[in-house]
Design a protein around this nucleic acid. Structure first.
Lengths: 216, 216
DNA sequence: CTGCCTTGTGAAGAATACTTCACAACTCTC
DNA sequence: GAGAGTTGTGAAGTATTCTTCACAAGGCAG
């Protein structure tokens, strides 16, 4: 799937360079010379990522951020700022930008940021399965219990687990263990014990974070 | 539903007082004079909460914690320590205790801790609906998108939302909005716009926490 | 007022997820 | 090696969740 990028910069030379590089990377790129033009383009087609210059005649980059956000809340915005001012960058992020890069930059540095943000966008878009996996894993009360117990126990044999959970039907536990295993949260060691994987521990910590943040 | 509590303390007088108070609170209380006795009792019946004295002849409280944890990973453990030593308390928590209270304590202070921990236990047990609600809310990709968008937008009218999400069928969005509304995550203002509630913002922050913790 | 966009409901069906049951291999202990 | 407890599979049924469709009330511009 080709990903759409919009480059917003008033300097034609830089813009052209950027477009060239991005196209070579296999991305669909469009360009805008100012914020108003960009906003119009946003209306007609959605973009995955926007490269936004801060200093522009007319609506400047900083003011453009919330306007873009308003129309395209899921698009990743990378701001390009000529001043290595931390405040500037922080402010841009507060306005709703996702990342920033300081001019002048090397092309590789920019591409790194672009790739990172596209990946993040894909991830948040749910194209990456992982988020769904985590929520699927955590969506069920028994699976949460299993994660909780294994997080505390370290590891456990099957029937011990069943007893700790106080479940009558062991096959039910089995079912959920299989789900968790397929989600990559637990592993089944050679000694026949179940234990959390790294992902499992992360999921468990998500769980306790959520529990914590719900009891104020 | 009556909740089971186990009081572990070698001083008979204090133990009796505690039992009396807890029973008056409507709780099912059992008592043990030492750790070994307690561990035996744990085998036969599950407890929701354990009050554990630190200083005891034989196996002391600190060493008892992991043994109890091993057998009852979901039981809340409150340790009662006579020394107001922070290190002691921290160590106990590291061993797997959930809370601590410094002796001598007022009965009200203890009851506060007991109630707080029972509530937490209930919560983690899934008797409180809330956790399930959150996960149900977050379990679906479209609902996550909605939370994300509303978190960024602040508020949005229905068709705007539909367009931002790039969904063809508006009734599908409608369905998930209803789910989120019933979960208490969004509210439907009089001006016909949807916005996140406090719980909704919390859920959104859970979401971004999880997203963040999955991309290292 | 007419027509179009917005916003919403409810029911039917498709798709998933969960539970339960019947059964079997396997590992201990005696 | 007999028997009891452990561990696991798969199929069938049940419940829940999600999608889709058909339809309609209300608002607003021309």
């Amino acid at each position: 799937m080709m990903e759409n990028i919009l480059v917003i910069d008033d300097e034609e030379e830089l813009r052209t360079t950027l477009v060239e590089v991005l196209v070579r990377e296999g991305l669909a790129v469009q360009e805008a010379a100012n914020a108003d033009q960009a906003l119009t383009m946003l209306k007609s087609a959605p973009f995955h990522l926007i490269l936004l210059d801060m200093v522009m005649p007319g609506t400047d980059g900083m003011s453009a951020i919330p306007l873009i956000r308003k129309q395209a809340p899921r698009t990743r915005i990378i701001v390009m700022t000529a001043f290595a001012s931390v405040q500037n960058a922080v402010h841009a992020l507060q306005q709703g930008a996702d990342d920033y890069i300081v001019k002048p930059f090397k092309i590789e540095a920019l591409m790194l940021a672009v790739r990172r943000n596209l990946q993040k966008a894909r991830f948040l878009d749910g194209e990456a399965v992982e988020l769904d996996g985590v929520f699927h894993g955590l969506a069920n009360a028994m699976r949460r219990q299993i994660l909780l117990v294994l997080d505390r126990q370290g590891q456990s044999r099957f029937m011990d687990l069943v007893r700790l959970l106080e479940v009558e039907d062991h096959t039910k536990v089995n079912f959920h263990l299989k789900v968790l295993r397929e989600a990559g949260f637990i592993e089944h060691g050679k000694d026949k014990t179940y234990a959390l994987t790294a992902a499992g521990h992360r999921a468990a910590s998500c769980l306790s974070f959520i529990s914590g943040s719900l009891t104020p």
